[in-house]
Simulated assay, not measured.
Amino acid sequence: MLLDLSKLFGRSKTSKDVAKERLKLVLIHDRANVSPQFLEMVKGEIIKVIQNYMEIDEGALDLQITRTKGEDGDSVVPALVANIPIRNVKNSGK
């Protein structure tokens, strides 16, 4: 009997999945005219600020630039979308 460790510890991404995700990020960055290095710099700054107030799961943090409708409803503009898992809120001043 073979033991499938990926089922035991959760599905790991295949190289195809990783390549597909990277391609999506490159396309989004190109459309927003933002380099991946710039996005990593922004991510680092956001982490620094948030860590003053909360403990977060940095490994699960997901920061992306996507496209959304502008305020006029007709134009399409870049949007920064962040999914930041919070482990604990630090002293909230109460």
Score class of each variant (00 low, 15 high):
P36Y: 02
F38T: 09
I28L: 10
L25Q: 08
L63V: 15
I47Q: 04
G10A: 06
G44D: 09
H29R: 02
E71F: 08
I65G: 00
R67E: 09
F9M: 11
D62G: 01
V81P: 00
E58V: 14
I84R: 06
K13W: 12
N88A: 15
L23S: 10
D30F: 05
R31Q: 08
T68I: 04
D74W: 11
R22G: 06
P85R: 06
T66C: 01
I84V: 15
K43V: 03
M41I: 09
I28G: 04
G73L: 04
L25F: 03
I65A: 01
R31E: 09
A32S: 03
S35T: 15
D72A: 05
D62R: 05
G93P: 03
N33P: 00
P36R: 06
T66Y: 00
E71A: 10
N88F: 12
D74I: 08
Q51K: 15
G70W: 08
K24I: 10
K13F: 11
D30L: 13
V76N: 04
E58Y: 02
G59L: 07
I84K: 06
S12K: 11
L25A: 09
M54S: 09
Q64I: 02
L23K: 13
V18K: 15
S75A: 07
G73H: 04
M54L: 13
E40G: 02
I86T: 14
I28D: 10
